[in-house]
Every structure is written in structure tokens, then in C-alpha cells.
């Protein structure tokens, strides 16, 4: 059995101490050995903890661009929906679905899996862009509605109601 050598300064030692006495380095090698395990490295022997949680997001990425340009016109009426209200409604529905699952099934692995799978159905990305130009006009009525979001919200309500009916709440 040969001596251990410090990787840095080649200081020889019979035992691989934590740090080299001469240069304070903490890696040692053993030249005459082909074993894989002939390196000592004290700096990376932390106990490994593997943690996997069930975090999956219901990411609804939504972007709406709206530009309405009115020029040289009179008596123009514009009506556009407020998408922010819809977003908070959607969050309310998501919370309600999670709550019902948590109460009825319990905060178990099963319950979490069900919630996760249901929310996965809603992972959608949506980009809406719209430009409206009104030029040299009179008596124009513009109505814009964010229908995609409305469909999403209705679907979530349907899921909520279906869950509640199945769990015999209503």
C-alpha cells in the first residue's frame, strides 16, 4: 500500500487526512492503485436528500393586446370586456375545486393526484391580438368580448359542479 499524495503539492502521507498538512488542500490520490476509489475528497460527502413534491402548476398564460384607433370620427361607441375580472373568477374556481377535493378525498396522495390531473386539463396558453381602426366615420358601435376566457371559466365551473354532484353534495 503506497502512500497517499496530495493532488496539489504531492505531499506524502500514510493516511489521507482531512487537509494536507503542507498546503491545506483536501484531495488525495494514490498513484499505484487502479481502484476507482483511490481519490479522497472530503468536500463533497454531504448526505443526499432527494425530494420530489407533486407541484404542478395550472399555468394559464394569457395575453391580450387590444388597440382601438379612432381618427376623424364622431359618435363612436366602444365596449370591451374587462379580462382582469375573469382572471380572479378563474382563480376562485380553481381554489374551490382544490378545496372540494381536499375535503372530500382528503389531503392524501390520491387527493393531490386527482387535483393535479384535473388542473392539467387547463394548461393553456392564449394570445389574442386585436387592432381596430376607425377612420373618418360616424355612428360606429364596437363591441369586443374575450370569449376564449369565458369558455375556460365555464369549463371550470362545469368541472366543479360535476365533482360536487359525484360527491353527493348537492
Amino acid at each position: 500500500m503506497s502512500n497517499w499524495k496530495c493532488v496539489h503539492c504531492k505531499y506524502e502521507s500514510e493516511n489521507p487526512y482531512k487537509n494536507c498538512k503542507r498546503c491545506n488542500y483536501n484531495r488525495w490520490e494514490q498513484e499505484e492503485s487502479n481502484l476507482e476509489n483511490n481519490h479522497w475528497n472530503f468536500s463533497s460527502h454531504d448526505d443526499a436528500t432527494i425530494l420530489q413534491d407533486g407541484g404542478q402548476f395550472s399555468s394559464v398564460d394569457q395575453e391580450s393586446d387590444e388597440l382601438i384607433w379612432i381618427k376623424d370620427s364622431c359618435n363612436v361607441t366602444v365596449q370591451s370586456t374587462d379580462t382582469q375580472a375573469a382572471v380572479s373568477l378563474q382563480v376562485g374556481l380553481q381554489l374551490a375545486i382544490a378545496l372540494i377535493i381536499s375535503i372530500a378525498i382528503g389531503d392524501t396522495i390520491q387527493g393531490q393526484a386527482v387535483a393535479q390531473e384535473i388542473f392539467q386539463q387547463f394548461n393553456d396558453e392564449q394570445t389574442n391580438k386585436q387592432k381596430i381602426y376607425v377612420d373618418n366615420s360616424k355612428d360606429v358601435n364596437i363591441v369586443t368580448t374575450d370569449t376564449d376566457l369565458a369558455v375556460n371559466i365555464e369549463a371550470m365551473l362545469q368541472i366543479l359542479v360535476a365533482l360536487v354532484v359525484k360527491l353527493d353534495v348537492l
Binding site: 370620427s73 361607441t77 366602444v78 370591451s80 376562485g92 374556481l93 369565458a150 371559466i153 365551473l157
Partner: peptide, 19 residues
């Protein structure tokens, strides 16, 4: 929540401007 969704879908919370 049903009421809120129905209200949103049937009568969108809209802003109306007369220009």
C-alpha cells in the same frame, strides 16, 4: 360561483365609452 360565472358570461363586465 355559478352566479358569478353566469353573470360574467351573460353580461360581461364591460366598460362603455362614448367618444
Amino acid at each position: 360561483l355559478t352566479k358569478q360565472v353566469d353573470a360574467f358570461v351573460d353580461q360581461p363586465n364591460s366598460t362603455k365609452k362614448d367618444l
